[in-house]
């Protein structure tokens, strides 16, 4: 598995990070370095090993169905770069 410029562009697009064309090759090289290093994991036999996503061993705690939050538009918009009439405002989205 080797990352090329096209893959870098694709990942950058998925991650919504602008990567200038001239940086793509350098990033590809870096990622390949890291990926070939983590390939070391292939030495480990993980047949019949359950993936471990969380170490707590507990199940999900649940809360009761009460309205305990909301109605705090000042907090919600406290740091907003642009808003109007209580809405967040972004460049127009075309569907």
């Amino acid at each position: 598995m080797s990352v090329d410029k096209t893959t870098v562009a694709k990942i950058a697009r998925l991650a919504r990070i602008h990567v200038p064309d001239e940086r793509q090759q350098a990033i590809a090289t870096e990622l390949n370095g890291i990926l070939s290093w983590v390939d070391e994991l292939n030495e480990v036999n993980t047949d019949n090993v359950e993936p471990l996503a969380n170490v707590t061993g507990h199940s999900l705690p649940m809360r009761d169905d009460f309205v305990t939050d909301g109605d705090r538009i000042d907090d919600v918009l406290a740091n907003v770069p642009e808003s109007a009439g209580g809405f967040f405002v972004v460049p127009k989205v075309v569907e």
């Binding site: 598995m1 983590v38 994991l41 292939n42 480990v44 993980t46 090993v49 359950e50 993936p51 471990l52």
Partner: peptide, 15 residues
């Protein structure tokens, strides 16, 4: 599967 899931499995072995 090759990376993330593999890593989660090794994570269990480490634990």
């Amino acid at each position: 599967d090759a990376y993330y899931l593999k890593a989660q499995r090794v994570r269990r072995l480490i634990r």
